[in-house]
């Protein structure tokens, strides 16, 4: 059902990143032990990279794709010998001789508990994969009782382009990082407050149109739980018409300025319902501006004038 080319290789990423020279030196290999198997991984790789290279499944929620890992959710923890505590595989880099266990009792317990703690306080129904992990790790978010404190709150709808449903927010910081220094540099949102009261906010909680938001939607693109959503998607979910199985994704190029951003158009019933950009494309790294993200309305009217 998809025309997206998942195996896309971006040549400009190869060998052009290093500051010193456009032709990077080959990275040395580091030998580690992963679940009893000796494996070689490139120096600088994370434990998660090593797991992925071996096909070892590690659940992640806050892992940043194109963002620096904040390792806040702690779902990806693994056991490293001689480490007092578990370590986040998404950010911990491999070291020679490291002995890593991804499926010990402690690891399973922590993953179960992270899922339970989140599940008991946040609406995870729009987060892909979570239900499966809950089952896999035997998490039971209901056992904290009905008095368990949650982040439940009304959906914030203060503009026509996207909605913020912080009942679904796991505080992974990805939207803040995408809006901030790592990509958009608009700094419209921040983490405010502390502890369980920490939440994503504008200054003094003002509505988005009063804030620095420029509606690039790069926060929506990185949100792992559906707390940030195109208004089209939100409205369709409310109406019960949102059906991902009936959607297609098609890559094309933005019709506006000359930068040439790849748009992935998510279509359902011949309507564009959402726009993303491939995370691994050298032009966008998954980011767009308001025109690319939301500038598709002009082809939606079946009868143009």
């Amino acid at each position: 059902m998809t025309q997206t080319d998942t195996a896309r290789i971006d040549t400009t990423r190869i060998d052009t990143r290093p500051q010193e020279t456009p032709v990077g030196l080959p990275r040395r290999a580091v030998t580690i032990q992963l679940d009893g198997h000796e494996i070689k991984v490139p120096e600088g790789a994370t434990i998660l990279d090593a797991c992925e290279s071996r096909g070892t499944a590690v659940p992640t929620l806050c892992y940043g794709d194109t963002l620096d890992p904040v390792n806040a959710c702690r779902l990806c923890v693994v056991e490293v010998e001689n480490s007092r505590v578990l370590v986040p595989s998404c950010s911990r880099k491999v070291e020679p001789g490291m002995v890593v266990h991804t499926d010990t009792e402690r690891v399973r317990h922590s993953r179960k508990m992270v899922l339970e703690l989140l599940g008991s306080s946040v609406d995870l129904s729009a987060a892909p994969s979570v239900a499966g992990w809950m089952k896999q790790y035997g998490a039971d978010p209901t056992r904290y009782g009905e008095i368990a404190k949650t982040v439940k709150q009304p959906v914030k709808i203060d503009n026509e382009l996207y909605v913020r449903d912080y009942s679904r927010c796991i505080l992974c910081y990805k939207c803040v990082d995408a809006c901030g220094e790592q990509w958009q540099n608009s700094f419209a949102i921040t983490v405010a407050g502390r502890g369980f009261d920490a939440h994503i906010s504008t200054e003094f909680g003002v509505e988005l149109p009063e804030s620095a938001c420029v509606y690039c939607g790069n926060c929506i693109a990185v949100c792992p739980t559906g707390a940030l959503m195109f208004k089209t998607e939100h409205d369709m979910r409310e109406l019960g018409t949102w059906d991902e199985s009936a959607q297609r994704q098609t890559d094309t190029i933005c019709p506006y300025c000359g930068v040439g951003c790849t748009l992935t158009l998510h279509t359902q019933d011949n309507e564009i319902v959402k726009v993303t950009s491939p995370l691994d494309h050298s032009v966008t790294s998954g980011n767009l501006c308001i025109k690319g993200r939301f500038g598709f309305q002009h082809v939606q009217n079946h009868k143009r004038d």
């Binding site: 503009n159 509606y215 308001i290 939301f294 309305q297």
Partner: peptide, 8 residues
């Protein structure tokens, strides 16, 4: 093209 964007 852009006038259809409901830009706040």
């Amino acid at each position: 093209q852009s006038s259809a964007i409901a830009s706040p």
